[in-house]
Computed example of a mutant assay.
Amino acid sequence: MSDEARFRVWRGDGGAGGLVEYAVEAHEGEVVLDVLHRLQATQAPDLAVRWNCKAGKCGSCSMEINGRPRLACMTRMSMLPPGEPVTVTPIRTFPVIRDLVCDVSENYLRARQIPSFTPAPQTRPGDFRMTQDDVRRPQEFRKCIECFLCNNVCHVTRDHEENRPHFAGPRYLMRVAELEMHPEDTADRRMIAQDAFGLGYCNITKCCTEVCPEHIRITDNALIPLKERVADRRYDPLVWLGRTIGLRPGLRRDTPVVPNTGF
């Protein structure tokens, strides 16, 4: 069974562009990416769409569908209002290369700025002994597929472009939190998170959590605990005393984890 769907697709490049309406066949059970592929095959062979796995695990097909940041491969046509046009635009926070493809390279530049996993110097391969309880917190963050929908929807940069040089966004603040919570890591990245990555700009509105296709509790399990650790590092009187007399900084205080119920 097939129906005719109306798609309003943004066409253009970094200079200019606009919405172009198409009538395209849509079959029962299809996702938005299926219909975009049919549109490429039948009417718009030059339509630029980034995709790879079509299974919700590569994060490539990020776009805004009816104004909401989504993965095109995970958005079924049946989820959208029947009989109404489907508006498809590129994710808004990043520069457009062409049509639905954006330049997200600034995210990878941020990734390279994070100090990598740093075990104790005396640790040798095979020395790690960790229980599941040890790894349960950073393990959740490893589910990230780097679709950058969280960075796209964050109003700190989405609505205030002047903040972009100073704010790494939820994805890479979450990466800092992941390493901070690793039981075998010894580096202290808390001041990097605050001073270089702009953790203080985040006002925990949870918009990043709401759009995460992997249902990671970014705000509750990464950003808020990271803010608490930064506060401990900067304002805890015992840590201040340790810094003053030259002791190694890094007093850690664990915070309760909010169970991930998004599976």
Rank of each mutant, 00 (worst) to 15 (best):
F7Q: 03
R8N: 15
G14I: 03
A16Q: 08
Y22G: 00
A23T: 04
V24Y: 05
G29K: 11
V32A: 00
D34G: 03
L36H: 01
L39E: 12
A41G: 06
W51S: 11
N52H: 14
A55H: 07
K57R: 05
S62Y: 15
I65Y: 06
P69M: 12
R70A: 01
A72S: 09
R76N: 06
P90D: 07
V96C: 05
R98H: 13
R98F: 13
L100C: 02
V101F: 10
D103W: 14
R110T: 07
Q113M: 11
I114D: 07
P119G: 09
P119L: 06
F128N: 09
T131N: 13
R137F: 00
P138H: 08
E140L: 11
N151G: 01
C154W: 08
V156H: 02
R158F: 12
E161Y: 15
N163Y: 05
R164T: 14
F167N: 01
F167S: 01
A168I: 03
A177S: 15
E180F: 02
H182E: 07
D188L: 09
R189T: 02
T205Y: 14
C212D: 10
C212A: 00
I216H: 05
R217A: 13
D220Q: 15
V230Q: 03
R233C: 08
D236T: 04
L238W: 11
W240F: 12
W240S: 10
P256A: 09
V258G: 02
T261P: 01
